Amino acid sequence: MVSKLLTWIGKVLNWSPILHVSSDSDFGSFDGSKDDFRLSLLTLSLGQNKYYFISASFNNNEWRVNIFHNLDFFNVCPISTEKEIEMKNSAYIDSFNDRAEETDEIVKRHIELLKEKITQNRTRISNSFTKLTGYRSLVLALSGAGVYLLTEILKSRAIDMYLGISSTFLLLFILYGLSAFLQITFALKIKAFVKSSFKEFKDNPTSIELAKSFYTDFVSLNNESQIIVSITKNAEKYFNRSFIVLILAWFWLFFHQNTFSINEAIFLPTENEFVVMGKEQKLQTEQMSAFFSSLAKYQGTIYVVSNTSNQKVETLTLFIQSILTENQKLSPILLKNDYLDNDVIILKLGE
């Protein structure tokens, strides 16, 4: 039970760039299945590399503390070198020597099987690149929604907890969206894979040499497909996260704008209240006319409610002050935190 709880906490913290939990052997992901893990104060994922600041890692029953650690993707999933593939080729060719009397038949079967495996790997690579291209287009589309969200947040004058939550999710969207885009760009740039050479087969046109060429392509393509599929899964992970946090950012902004903001929708005109300045600082002529009609029959205090930063309230106050009688008094109420959305100005007669 404790192990499941810790795994769940690790999965949750894997979403956060602060107090981040991850596994180096899984290139920064975490599902609790690996023997190693890393707890870092701050992490940044930038394509091929993940950067950890002030982290503690546990691996092979040993703890290590790092002020800075750079995790390179190719340290986790390396590209097979020409020397490594040649060693595998030699071991593969040697396997036929023990069955010399059946070599031709066995080689033919191997070639057919290798052809099938090569086709499968090429299909996996092609499907992954198709996904990556689609994710790249979607990330760019979401970026437009993110920019629009930023403008809406910057336009909001009332600051509260809900706007702060929305801004936090927007920051996560920027981090995840950038991570997804850089993962995609990284995958599309990988080219350093070994390929078979026709020259070798031309110099030694035997069935075993042909099988060796197919085996070279199989090993190389198998390595390439593992790398591309792994990067695609990482890009998909960050894309899904960016989409989710963007939805949450919009939700909290909507909640902020429609539930906890004071605007014309909340301050509807009443018998003794008049919204004389509306959106975009436009004078509401009908409300102003209604105010003057009520003012002619009223004796007492007139309250002017507005944001302190509203530059038009002073002009309006001076104008109203100039037309008041001896039995009428003007009392401004200025809100220091710009709580009134859209800088509306409300005139209220009496208590």
Rank of each mutant, 00 (worst) to 15 (best):
V21N: 01
V21E: 01
S22L: 00
S22E: 01
S22H: 00
S23Q: 05
S23D: 11
S25A: 10
D26V: 05
D26E: 13
F27D: 03
F27M: 07
F27G: 08
G28E: 12
G28I: 12
S29D: 14
F30V: 11
F30K: 10
S33I: 04
D36M: 03
D36K: 02
D36Q: 05
F37H: 04
F37S: 05
R38H: 01
L39V: 14
L42P: 00
L42Q: 02
T43M: 12
G47R: 04
G47W: 01
Q48W: 01
Q48S: 03
N49C: 01
N49Y: 07
Y52H: 09
Y52I: 00
I54H: 08
S55H: 02
S55E: 08
A56I: 02
S57R: 11
F58N: 00
N60V: 00
N61Q: 00
E62L: 06
W63D: 05
R64N: 08
R64G: 02
V65N: 02
V65L: 07
V65E: 02
V65S: 04
N66W: 06
F68T: 07
H69Q: 10
H69P: 01
H69T: 03
L71C: 00
D72F: 04
F73C: 03
F73G: 03
F73H: 10
F73K: 05
F74D: 12
V76S: 04
V76G: 03
C77N: 14
C77W: 02
I79V: 14
I79Q: 07
T81Q: 08
E84V: 06
I85F: 05
I85T: 06
E86G: 02
E86V: 02
M87F: 07
N89D: 09
S90I: 11
S90Q: 08
A91S: 09
Y92P: 05
D94H: 05
S95E: 06
S95K: 07
F96G: 09
F96N: 14
F96H: 10
F96D: 06
N97M: 06
N97F: 09
A100H: 13
E101V: 08
E101C: 07
E102L: 07
E102I: 05
T103A: 12
D104K: 12
I106W: 12
I106V: 12
V107E: 11
V107P: 03
V107F: 04
K108N: 12
K108P: 04
E112H: 11
L113R: 13
K115W: 00
E116S: 07
E116F: 06
E116L: 11
E116V: 03
I118F: 05
T119D: 11
N121F: 06
T123A: 04
I125F: 09
I125P: 07
N127A: 13
S128P: 00
F129Y: 14
T130V: 15
T130N: 14
T130I: 09
G134Y: 15
G134V: 07
G134K: 13
Y135V: 09
R136F: 12
L138A: 15
V139P: 09
L140E: 15
L140Q: 15
L140A: 15
A141P: 03
L142A: 12
L142Y: 12
S143Y: 15
S143R: 15
G144A: 10
G144L: 14
A145C: 13
V147T: 14
Y148A: 13
Y148M: 13
L149M: 15
L149A: 13
L150C: 03
T151G: 04
I153F: 10
L154Y: 05
K155D: 15
S156A: 15
A158V: 08
M161Y: 15
